[in-house]
Design a protein around this nucleic acid. Structure first.
Length: 465
RNA sequence: GGCGUCGUGGCCAAGCGGCAAGGCAAGGGUCUGCAAAACCCUCAUCACGGGUUCAAAUCCCGUCGACGCCUCCA
């Protein structure tokens, strides 16, 4: 039985879907106004793993990730650069899509955009006004009436009174209550604007997610995800709008990932302490970032550092070691070794499911995989043939695949250099045959300095970057 | 100030009432011409102080500390 930690109840709950075998899942994507950083990547990876695991467990997942492509930040940035806000947003959407692909994040079933959901946004606002949950103000904005929602604050555990006390919000004259928030914003001259019953304007920050959910997944969904910095106000307001509009419970499970930190602080655009996805991928393989995320708990904050990346990359190598083929001289492993291998493959699968069923405990799942790796390697050393190794290696491949790891051969980034390296290695093999150890070691050491590792074995010599 | 998450070996980290998973690093060994890889062995009583229990890293109370949110943010 899968259990999922629900921010709404602060507990792990049994996972039950609205419809049998179907999961309706919505994850908040980025507001596209600048280069995405690895914190965004972490969030995408976390929910990609959840999605892959749900599919592995037999669910059909309708996975929606939105792009918020109209927003103050986008407008400001576009004005600064002197470009069209829509064009700016579009370029970042293209870039982000490419990043997701590079990071092996499965494509969403749908990627809706705020600007393409305008009808639904407006009909929702209209509905909220009719029900008394929203009101147009004299300045052309439309505000959500917080005090009319008895459940307001249930996700973040805040009370309207508490927030008022510590509030640093500038109180808009036009608001009935300081905590009321805009569902529609009147356009200033030169800003992107859409016609509406309340005058030209654009959606407020939270309404677009409510509307996109409604338009694509319906009134009720199973899982709503995002970074935990979105709990308040974004998700709180989303719940308020949607539930007041439909009169039904919106999302059953709210999942939030912890923040990626750099030197003890949240990595964020405003703090400027970030590593962009481009930066990261120019120095590491995509699997390494995923490995780093998988090694921890998705809800806990994660500190990015060279040390942690190093460990992630070594761990990746270790997983890969389990997939290496049988020795060409393999003549079959002893019975006890073969039995142990089968048994471990079985045990690993079980451990994996138990761990992942417990709120996607990837680190626990990984532990089982490492044990399988050791058993496979032991069997290979004991002379297991590829036929004997195959079933266990298939299990390993399947389960690492569920985590979204590709474990491909390390890229021979050298391009043209590769064939020269191969030549060098070939020559070295000849030297070794003639027992010219000094020369062979020199070649090996010098290549090592250049980033090329050589491994000699009974089956011959292999090398990799 | 309010709300919330958390504090496990040198580092990352699982465990959530019954002898402390796993990875990285380190040390010793097997293998190897020597290495590397692989394999074997070694390496913690769980921030602190009380309490509950036959039994607590795991539950309760308190202290200290970290981080997030309360303003745009994955």
């Amino acid at each position: 039985m899968l259990r999922v930690y629900n921010t709404l109840s602060h507990k792990k709950e049994d996972f039950q879907t609205l419809e049998p075998n179907v999961v309706k899942m919505y994850v908040c994507g980025p507001t596209v106004y600048s280069d995405a950083h690895i914190g965004h990547a972490m969030s995408a990876i976390v929910f990609d793993v959840a999605r892959r695991y749900l599919e592995y467990r037999g669910y059909q997942v309708r996975f929606v990730m939105n792009f918020t492509d109209v927003d103050d930040k986008i407008i400001n940035r576009a004005n600064k650069l002197g470009v069209d806000p829509q064009a700016l947003a579009e370029s970042y959407i293209v870039a982000f899509r490419k990043h997701l692909e590079d990071l092996n994040v499965l494509p969403a079933t749908v990627n809706p955009r705020a600007t393409q959901t305008m009808d639904k946004i407006q009909s929702m606002i209209q509905g909220l006004i009719e029900k008394g949950f929203a009101y147009p103000a004299r300045n052309g904005d439309v505000y959500f009436r917080v005090t009319h929602d008895p459940n307001y604050g249930k996700l973040s555990g805040r009370k309207i009174e508490d927030m008022q006390a510590g509030s640093r919000i500038e109180v808009e004259e036009e608001k009935e209550h300081p905590m009321d928030f805009a569902v529609w914003k009147a356009a200033k001259p030169g800003e992107p604007a859409w016609d509406s019953p309340w005058g030209k304007g654009r959606p407020g920050w939270h309404i677009e997610c409510s509307a996109m959910n409604l338009a694509i997944l319906g009134e009720q969904i199973d899982i709503h995800g995002g970074g935990n910095d979105l709990v308040f106000p974004h998700h709180e307001n989303e719940i308020a709008q949607t539930e007041c509009f439909t009169g039904k419970q919106f999302a059953r499970y709210w999942m939030h990932n912890g923040m990626l930190q750099l030197q003890g602080e949240k990595m964020s655009k405003s703090l400027g302490n970030l590593v962009t996805i481009d930066d990261f991928l120019s120095r590491h393989e995509a699997d390494a970032l995923r490995m780093m995320v998988l090694n921890g708990s998705y809800r806990a904050p994660l500190s990015y550092s060279d040390g942690i990346m190093d460990a992630a990359e070594r761990g990746l190598d270790r997983l890969r070691s389990g997939l290496k083929p049988a020795s060409t001289s393999a003549s079959g492993a002893p019975t006890d070794v073969r039995l142990a291998l089968d048994k471990q493959a079985e045990a690993t699968q079980q451990t994996f499911i138990e761990a992942m069923d417990d709120d996607f405990n990837s680190s626990g799942g990984l532990a089982g995989l490492f044990e399988l790796v050791r058993t496979v390697n032991t069997a290979r050393d004991a002379g297991a043939s590829s036929a004997e190794l195959n079933p266990a290696q298939d299990t390993l491949r399947t389960l690492t695949g569920v985590l979204g790891l590709r474990l491909g051969e390390k890229k021979a980034s050298g391009g043209d250099a590769d064939k020269f390296i191969s030549l060098l290695v070939e020559v070295r093999t000849e030297m070794r045959k003639q027992k010219l150890w000094g020369m062979s070691d020199l070649v090996r050491d010098r290549l090592k300095e250049l980033g090329v590792s050589i491994e000699d074995s009974k089956d011959g010599t292999t090398w990799h970057w």
